[in-house]
Design a protein around this nucleic acid. Structure first.
Length: 825
RNA sequence: GCGGGCGUGGCGGAAUUGGCAGACGCGCUAGACUUAGGAUCUAGUAUCUCCGAUGUGAAGGUUCAAGUCCUUUCGCCCGCACCA
């Protein structure tokens, strides 16, 4: 019988579904393992990146299950978001209907891959029984003061007609639709993630199982810096300006000051002065420059003198105040002190506007001069021009000067972060409504928990213009104030979809709980996620938000852990012809097509075999063929040997013929390799090649040993082990073959095989003989030989003898069981 | 500019703590079986001036021994980028 993958895969998928084969419940008697893949946005179609992601996750889950863990391996849908709404605008289909049909389609595609999910735990973030709890999360954060509303100048995508979080603006463009992002003043809801900045940073150290790259990206994003805030008096006014600097040691080198053009103080500084016009002119020009150019360090630095002077609090010097494009309002205090000699940006600015450059730090053994230097010096050195601190080192200066500043009440130490609060308001329909009501009497009122969920109205039109469709729904907007019962209106913004995905891994632990988002028992048992797998594109956004949620929920006593994901694997992309598969390049290979032609097992095997999971994978049609051939090869050898081993029982004797010993060696070493490769490094590609070696050994055995001489027990052991170690990779064919050889139950419920060290002990081993580090001969020696005996055996090699004849042996290095290196002169 | 990663046959990729470079697969070559082979099985396949040398982007170094460690350098990929 040939390998009929179509029939086999259909049959097996149906029976797993009927039996709910991968359903899992809390089981205190077993060690738990939570394997999680990043849930997909239901676009409607699976692509190869999904196949890779979920195949990797499935191997992990199946492997851990066979090792005796109670494995949580769930799947769900990140189902809110713009594409559904855009489809509604374009085709007139309601987003809910569109999304549900996409989910149905993708679920079928996932099922055709034979993934071992507990489908009873499926969640979709757009269902009221899920977003009810997303709203609940909002209320918890609101009660803790971690959700708040403020007017702010926000990123606005003119095409999506919504605001975006800083994290969603990529190179000044909308992460989703790629159109240029503008600015707008709006009242918006924020989550106070900055409250957790320090802990999010500190705990990165605890993430031992995360890739270094991701940790560094988060570290940079949080962007902690230590420095000082220092007050400068404005001359001719009682007011002060506060600057933030990380280099207080350079304070005597300040020769000018700069204030951001958008700074609220600018108005009173320039209003009614002769400098007003020139300043306004510049401010207007800067306003019309987009964010990318504005914040690029290639943009020419531009500034205008305000006519004002500030006073250096350390030496009383009068210094001119400028407005300039290179100072950002959002960071620090929006005002900086200009130290041209020791900051490259300030240096460029000073040269352009002929401002003095005063050196206050001299590097060891050189004499820099402010007039002749060609670039700023930002290293360490000895203080000069800084009485009374001259002569001390600049590193010592930092703490001394800050102490001095604090003692004299001129300023204070200050830690700053680049991380901003998370803007979660979206002026769109297809998201979780923010559970807030505005009452004329009571103001902002959170919707009480027993009134959740605030359900999305259905009487809406999708025009794609103006405000959110929610704002146009009469039924939705008008409500009663939960506090006073008076007339009130609902918040019409919905939440960023990243809010929904910041806690889904918690819901999987207890997906149908009607009374709570999750019970503490279930979350206590399953959390944290032991292995999280997904694309590196989520290195900052999703992973940082999820860490924030976990910490906030931990502090409120809902979650026992402080970090959600113990180990993180960022899988590489799937490439074709060296480029990422994309419609525009026309290099897309659809999973359906491959499954149809070769079956899911072949598709999975290829994708796991072609490359280690964290690296990019080059698609190869011929490589797929090769994997298909391999499965056929497995099928044929099992089928051929099956009659020999069926109904054979007993212990394998120790004294076997050499060929049987070799076969057993191949079996046990394959088990060892596959076990090590999967558990230590997730190197599925080398694990699979180890299985291929075993299959090659079986064919060798078949070639060399006649049918009558074959040992049924040894062959049985070989086949059983082959099928079990292959099971996590190719679940359908192994299930079928397991039944064929008379295995009990499902192969996926078998214990992961153990290898026998005794079988791996060889009587004779081959060692390499080198002369001056070059391989000259190989000899076979008894495994138990000690160093002296090994040396003796090596020196007896005729080849070695002739090569060292007449030369003097200077040294002999022996690596037991491996090699002998003879050093001659 | 800063940070991270990578560089090994015709190709994808293997090589614990430095210890046989090229596992496994693809491709290619030959043979067997065949009316036939784009099936299957078997054997071979780094390079060269082929009884011997040379080979892991390049150049140095450490070592009995280097793909692996150190120094310099070139190339590619990814992330961040006026954060004071």
């Amino acid at each position: 019988m040939a390998y009929n993958f179509k029939a086999i895969e259909k049959k097996r998928q149906e029976s797993w579904e009927d039996e709910k084969a991968f359903r899992v419940e809390r089981d205190e008697s077993k060690k738990k393992y939570y394997s999680l893949v990043m849930f997909p946005y239901p676009s409607g179609n699976l692509h190869m990146g999904h196949v890779r992601n979920y195949s990797i996750g499935d191997v992990v889950a199946r492997f851990k299950r066979m090792q005796g863990h109670s494995v949580l391996n769930p799947m769900g849908w990140d189902a809110f978001g713009l594409p559904a709404e855009n489809a509604a605008i374009k085709n007139g289909i309601h987003p809910d209907k569109w999304t549900c049909s996409c989910i149905d389609n993708m679920r079928n595609q996932l099922k055709s891959l034979g993934l071992s999910y507990d489908w009873d735990r499926e969640v979709a973030t757009c269902k009221p029984d899920y977003y009810k709890w997303t709203q609940w999360m909002f209320l918890q954060l609101y009660n803790q003061g971690l959700a708040y509303k403020k007017k702010s100048n926000v990123n606005w995508c003119p095409s999506c007609e919504t605001v975006l979080a800083n994290e969603q603006v990529v190179n000044g463009k909308c992460e989703r639709c790629k159109s240029e992002v503008g600015k707008k003043d709006l009242e918006q809801w924020f989550f106070r993630i900055t409250e957790y900045a320090q802990r999010l940073l500190d705990d990165i150290d605890k993430l031992k199982g995360w890739p270094e790259k991701v940790k560094i990206m988060q570290e940079n994003w949080i962007g902690r810096s230590e420095g000082a805030e220092i007050e400068f008096k404005i001359e001719g006014s009682g007011k002060c300006m506060v600057v933030y600097t990380t280099r207080p040691d350079t304070i005597f080198g300040v020769t000018y000051m700069v204030i951001a053009p958008e700074h609220p103080m600018v108005e009173e500084l320039i209003g009614g002065t002769p400098y007003e016009e020139a300043c306004r002119d510049l401010i207007n020009r800067i306003k019309h420059v987009n964010e990318i150019t504005r914040t690029s360090n290639e943009t020419e630095k531009e500034g205008v003198f305000t006519g004002r002077y500030a006073v250096n609090p350390l030496n009383g010097e009068k210094i001119p105040l400028f407005i300039a494009n290179y100072v950002l309002l959002e960071y620090g205090t929006g005002i900086v002190m200009g130290v041209p000699a020791h900051d490259q940006r300030d240096f460029e600015f000073a040269r352009k506007y002929n401002l003095p450059v005063r050196v206050v730090i001299q590097p060891e053994g050189s004499q820099m001069d402010g007039d002749s230097m060609t670039e700023a010096y930002d290293g360490e050195g000895v203080m000069v021009n800084s009485p009374p601190f001259n002569g001390i080192s600049s590193s010592e200066m930092i703490s001394k000067i800050v102490d001095y500043i604090e003692e004299n009440k001129l300023g204070k130490r200050k830690v700053n972060f680049k991380l901003r609060d998370w803007l979660i308001s979206r002026q769109r329909y297809w998201g979780a409504p923010i559970p807030i009501v505005y009452c004329q009497k009571c103001g902002i009122v959170p919707v009480p928990q027993d009134q959740l969920p605030v359900v999305l109205p259905t009487d809406v039109k999708f025009t794609g213009r103006g405000q959110s469709p929610l704002a146009a729904s009469e039924e939705f907007i008008h409500t009663e104030c939960p506090t006073c019962g008076g007339k009130a209106t609902r918040e019409t913004d919905t939440m960023d979809t990243f809010v929904c995905s910041s806690w889904y891994y918690l819901r999987y632990c207890d997906p149908t709980n009607p009374d709570e988002p999750f019970s503490s028992e279930n979350v206590g048992y399953w959390m944290p996620v032991d292995q999280y797998i997904g694309g590196v594109e989520h290195a900052i956004l999703h992973l940082l938000y999820s860490r924030f949620f976990t910490k906030a929920l931990h502090d409120m006593g809902f979650v026992p852990v402080e970090e959600p994901f113990t180990n993180l694997l960022t899988q590489g992309m799937v490439l074709k012809d060296g480029a990422k598969m994309s419609k525009s390049l026309g290099n897309v290979v659809s999973p359906e097509e491959i499954i149809d032609k070769y079956g899911a097992d072949t598709a999975r095997l290829f994708i796991l075999f072609a490359s280690p999971p964290e690296k990019d994978l080059e698609w190869s049609d011929q490589g797929v063929e090769g994997c298909y051939r391999f499965l056929n090869r497995v099928w044929r050898i099992v089928e051929e040997f099956q009659p020999l081993i069926i109904n054979v029982h007993g212990e394998i004797p120790d004294n076997l013929p050499q060929a049987d010993k070799e076969l057993r060696y191949a079996v046990h070493s394959a088990v060892k390799k596959v076990t090590d490769y999967i558990s230590e490094r997730f190197n599925f590609n080398t694990a699979i090649s180890a299985v291929m070696e075993l299959v090659n050994s079986l064919y060798y055995y078949r070639e060399k040993v006649t049918a009558e001489e074959r040992n049924p027990l040894a062959v049985k052991e070989a086949l059983e082990n082959l099928i079990t170690i292959l099971a996590p990779f190719v679940p359908h064919i192994t299930e079928e073959l397991w039944e064929l050889i008379g295995g009990k139950g499902s192969v996926h419920n078998q214990n992961w095989p153990k290898y026998d060290e005794r079988v791996l002990v060889r009587e004779e081993i081959e060692i390499v003989i080198q002369i001056n580090g070059r391989v000259k001969d190989r000899i076979s020696i008894a495994a138990g030989l000690d160093r002296e005996q090994t040396e003796k055996a090596a020196m007896e090699s005729p080849k070695v003898r002739s090569l060292i004849e007449g030369k003097s042996v200077a040294n002999i290095i022996i690596v037991p069981k491996k090699l002998v290196n003879i050093v001659v002169q």
